[in-house]
Design a protein around this nucleic acid. Structure first.
Length: 1003
RNA sequence: GCCCGGGUGGCGUAAUUGGUAGCCGCGCACCACUUAAAAUGGUGUUCUCAAAAGGAAUGUGGGUUCGAUUCCCACCCCGGGCACCA
């Protein structure tokens, strides 16, 4: 059959889809017309989409790198079409070890190597047709940029958050520099794999630990519910987690009077009994009781009954009203009359009122409440996490910060006037402590040993332990080793004199570096057994046989959660964990210990003894000491040098550049004192790779500003970053550092938000076809240049988005790409079937079914893109394409244009070309995004499945508005159903509107 | 050891809030077009039984339910992170 004729005559022959010429043509046009220029337009909502900017290596991009960039490009294009002012910038992070090591290898200056690599990266990025506004490009190695990195350092110094330290730090012998804890992997240098040593070197350190508590707490911070701020299609997203929607509604009856307690929502005219959400793993009744206790302070609440199970039909009926969520009703009763006031802070949003029976009835009869199914409906938007981040990344940060609540014990050292402090987070069994261990590299050790007869022997032993650690890495040590110091502490808890041992497992830089030990810790127990140290038990399991073994010190029992204490006598017979609070009070009241919180997070070692980094802007003056470089003298430029190889002496190569190093003290101007001119030398350490990336997202907002790192106007317009996309490997480095700096900048008033990134989305790695990481080493790298030449950038973009869930790791498969190419070619060909006749053709050429599908697609594609579910968005577009293509009368221009708009974010070049072919003079990328017409997606009839005893036996077409009774009748009349039902007693029929009829018969 | 994810056809995956498991794509088979091939279009494609009817099936085993990929309990496997952190 020939393709249908256009009303205007014979169909034009279609040109083939020539991606090469189309893509380069439109890339030039877009650049020329500056269609992606970003503006701070007060009339539009700002939307800031950000990629983790690349670190331009010498190898260029492989096909895995751009996956995240494609995603942000798709989102930014849709948001722009939806009328937002969009900031979608790009830049380069280029200071630091990788660039420097590469330069050393290639025997070029890092500055030149970086310039070359950036150029190559930009060329590659441009081939993808991304919508960056290059006028905001940044480069961390640009003095105009790092001026502000240095400025932030000066502010940190001013506030006492940057300090010099001589403590031993991680030293990589191969890279010849100090490293932060975050730069280690398995005790080895993350860059080169060498085992790091502990080396005492003068370092600049940032006090990130001062922010540990806020970095931790803000991960869980919530935003108070904003009532219907956004009534657009985004307000209730499909796929929004149940916890966000499913709230419990409680009716709480007074214990004696005929009164009902109501938690009233005051804002937006909403009166509700909304109590809160059901948490995962929680029963409805538990949730209701818990929430009422938390919200009102009423403790004596008894669960009476649940009103009914949620009815899904009901949700269907109100689903389209985006501000409604559904709840389930629970009936509780107060068991006493103890009045409690609710929290002051909550009063603005809630109040507790008592209603009479009549009032409750009236209340429940509101139109937004539905009695019929005992399910109440109202407006609610549950408290949302302030950080819309994947739970996994939040969890990684929590682990990294490693908060631990415990107690500090202080004890005198026998025969000396010294005291020792020990930290314990598992202090419930502290009455079992019988010895103390100290780390072999503890700075206090030599003082402690002063005057003991074996001092030198112990010190030698410790030195050997430390050397062994450095050699083989910490993790590989299996069995603990130790030596008795000859000293004892006098136990404050009355267990007499406790020996102090050096133990290889003790860490000098956690807690106090000294630990009180007992039989109730696996490691301590093994250590004591090995060296025959006396032990004592105070914690026993419930099982009598096992308890006997614990008592005999045959096995170690360390489970405070399950164990029962025997000492101190105040808590004898009690479960250890449940009396934790009381033990704290007991120890504090007797002045035996103090509460203390410690963190695993260490301060950030911030200096590198390397050339390629931002110079730390301070001067060391013989007379004035450390003097910050005045702001007006920033940036302190990195000098050009001939030799930039690391020295290994603990000094950076900059130290050798006399002309640069020797300077005037900014404070005393190096004026002569008693005829001698005080010498002033610049700091020669440089900043780590992570410095520039800790604040770069702010600079894009106002990239050219010479007076401030960002102007308040620009910052307030754009901040925070609405969507941040990048690899999960940055969870404990870049993302912690950036949050730390951001909070600091907030504290000094430089930014207006407490967190930099509102929503974080991590991108799943693209693996090579062999399942390994793409790497030059394996020879499995797929080059995007070649793929683009063969298939086109649009095909590559569609393929990468269609491969699978965006956040999932997935293997590249060039063969599968053909599907995406075919899809685009079918779109290309479909333009030949577009009917360009009268206006009537838009209805004439399309059935209501296709129209309905079109509008469903409009809705789903927008929701999926906003949700980063690109694979299903494309799948939906494919389904629509199949339907449009199969229409016998061709496709209407309106349908086709809508389709092009939906596809435009994914395949910007091809859609632009087709858009122009239809005669449009303006770009598709600034056209308005299609809007779903809800009326059109209602269906006239639906397929209903019929189950008999849970098994699907038949299906039938039912009219859209059929009632439950009608559906039941229709279903039971079906012969396939009768076959299973005939002669049996029908016990129950369940009707799920629009879905299925379930018949239960007696067996 | 501890903490997160995840296990669905030959493969990548989909499944709205507990409601007809396998959408979309790849691959494969057959058909059309072609001298032929490629490309394109069409049909089919979870397994099992010769077909139909039926049965089985979402890592394993149990539970709740009229109904479970989805909720609960236990276990196995894979991926990632943390790890002498007291």
């Amino acid at each position: 059959m020939k393709s249908p004729k256009s009303p205007l005559g014979a169909p034009k022959p279609l040109p083939p889809y020539d991606h090469m010429s189309i893509e380069s043509k439109w890339q030039k046009q877009w650049a020329k017309k500056k269609i992606y220029a970003t503006k701070e337009d007060a009339k539009k909502d700002a939307f800031y989409v950000l990629d983790m900017f690349p670190y331009p290596s010498g190898e260029g991009l492989h096909v895995g790198h751009p996956k995240g960039y494609i995603a942000t490009d798709v989102v930014s294009r849709m948001k722009r079409m939806q009328g937002h002012s969009v900031l979608h910038p790009m830049g380069f992070d280029a200071f630091g070890l990788p660039a420097e090591n590469y330069a050393i290898k290639m025997k070029t200056n890092p500055a030149i190597a970086v310039e070359k690599n950036v150029k190559r990266y930009k060329e590659q990025l441009e081939m993808f047709g991304f919508d960056y506004d290059w006028s905001r490009e940044i480069n961390t190695t640009d003095p105009a940029y790092y001026k502000w990195t240095q400025w932030i350092f000066l502010k940190l110094l001013e506030k006492g958050l940057a300090y010099e330290s001589h403590e031993p730090i991680n030293w990589c012998p191969s890279c010849k520099t100090g490293l932060a804890n975050e730069d280690l992997e398995d005790g080895k240098c993350e860059r080169c794999g060498s085992v790091v040593e502990k080396k005492p070197i003068r370092q600049w350190v940032l006090k990130i630990t001062d922010y540990a508590e806020r970095l931790l707490a803000d991960l869980d911070a919530t935003e108070k519910p904003l009532m219907i701020r956004d009534t657009g299609p985004d307000a209730v997203r499909p796929g929004m987690p149940l916890e966000e929607r499913n709230a419990v509604v409680c009716v709480v009856k007074h214990w004696s009077e005929d009164k009902f307690l109501c938690l009233r929502w005051k804002s937006n005219d909403w009166h509700g009994l909304v109590v809160g959400g059901v948490e995962k793993g929680e029963q409805l009744a538990e949730a209701a009781v818990r929430e009422v206790r938390e919200e009102t302070g009423y403790q004596n609440v008894r669960f009476v009954r649940e009103f009914a199970k949620l009815d899904s039909q009901f949700y269907q009926a109100i689903k389209k009203v985006n501000r409604f969520a559904h709840f389930t009703g629970v009936y509780l009763e107060l068991t006493d009359d103890a009045w409690k006031d609710i929290d002051e802070k909550e009063k603005a949003l809630h109040e507790v009122v008592w209603l009479s029976r009549a009032e409750v009835a009236g209340f429940l009869n509101r139109p937004d409440m539905n009695y019929l199914w005992d399910v109440f409906v109202g407006k609610v938007k549950a408290e949302q996490p302030a950080l819309d981040w994947p739970t996994s990344i939040k969890e990684l940060q929590r682990n990294w910060i490693g908060k631990s609540d415990g107690m500090i014990f202080t004890a005198p050292v026998k025969d000396t006037n010294l005291t020792i402090q020990t930290f314990s987070a598992h202090f419930e069994a502290c009455y079992a402590d019988t010895f103390v261990v100290i780390a072999p590299d503890h700075p206090f050790l030599s003082t402690l040993l002063e005057g003991t007869k074996d001092k030198q022997k112990v010190l030698d032993f410790c030195a050997a332990l430390v050397a062994k650690r450095a050699q083989q890495g910490f993790a590989e040590e299996k069995e603990s080793e130790g030596i008795f110091t000859g000293r004892y502490i006098v136990d404050p808890l009355g267990n007499g004199d406790l020996p102090i041992w050096v133990a290889s497992f003790a860490l000098a830089d956690y807690g106090t570096g000294i630990v009180k030990c007992s039989a109730h810790d696996d490691r301590d127990f093994a250590f004591a057994k090995k060296y025959g140290i006396k032990m004592k038990t105070v914690l026993y399991p419930k099982d009598a046989v096992l308890a006997e073994k614990v008592s005999a010190q045959e096995v170690c029992f360390a489970d405070a959660q399950a164990g029962v204490l025997s000492e101190p006598k105040e808590f004898a017979g009690k479960n250890a964990r449940s009396v934790r609070k009381e033990i704290i009070a007991h120890l504090e009241s007797k002045n035996l210990a103090k509460k203390k919180t410690t963190y695993r997070l260490r301060d950030w070692v911030f200096s590198r003894q390397r050339y390629w980094g931002e110079p730390i802007p301070v001067v060391h003056c013989e007379k004035c000491g450390v003097v910050p470089v005045p702001e007006k003298d920033l940036p302190v430029k990195l000098p050009k040098v001939k030799s930039y190889e690391p020295t290994g002496t603990g000094e950076s190569p900059l130290a050798a550049i006399e002309k640069w190093v020797n300077t005037k003290c900014p404070k005393c101007r190096s004026k002569k004192v008693n005829g001698v001119r005080p010498k002033a030398r610049r700091e020669t350490n440089t900043m780590p790779q992570w410095a520039g990336s800790s604040w770069y997202y702010l600079r894009y907002m106002d990239a050219q500003n010479k007076k401030a790192l960002v102007s308040p106007d620009a910052e307030q317009y754009w901040a925070p970053v609405d969507l941040y996309v990048g690899g999960a490997e940055h969870a404990t480095r870049h993302l912690i550092y950036a949050r730390f700096w951001h909070k600091f900048l907030y504290d000094i008033g430089a930014v207006s938000t407490t967190e930099p990134f509102k929503k974080l989305q991590h991108v799943g790695l693209i693996m090579a076809e062999d399942g390994r990481k793409m790497s030059k080493r394996w020879g499995n790298v797929v080059n995007p240049d070649e793929i683009i030449a063969t298939y086109g950038a649009d095909t590559l973009r569609v393929y990468e988005m269609f491969m699978g869930p965006f956040d999932q790791q997935i293997a590249w498969n060039t063969n599968s790409m053909i599907g995406s190419r075919r899809f685009l070619e079918r779109v290309w060909k479909l333009v030949g079937k577009v009917q360009v006749g009268s206006a009537a053709s838009s209805t004439g050429a399309s059935s209501t079914e296709v129209e309905s599908l079109l509008h469903k697609t409009v809705k789903k594609v927008a929701a999926d893109i906003a949700d980063m579910k690109f694979n299903t968005a494309i799948s939906t577009l494919m389904i629509l394409l199949n339907a449009l293509d199969e229409q016998p009368a061709g496709v209407s221009r309106e349908q086709y244009e809508t389709f092009l708009k939906l596809l435009a974010p994914f395949a910007p070049h091809m859609t632009e070309e087709l858009w122009a072919q239809l005669g449009n003079k303006t770009t598709v990328h600034l056209a308005s995004w299609p809007v779903c017409d809800e009326a059109k997606i209602q269906e006239a009839s639906r397929k209903i499945g019929v189950q008999v005893n849970g098994k699907v036996r038949a299906e039938f077409e039912a009219p859209g508005g059929a009632s439950d009774a009608e559906l039941e009748k229709l279903a039971l009349a079906l012969p396939e159903v009768q076959k299973w039902v005939a002669g049996k007693q029908v016990k129950k029929v369940i009707v799920v509107k629009g879905k299925l009829v379930s018949v239960v018969v007696a067996e």
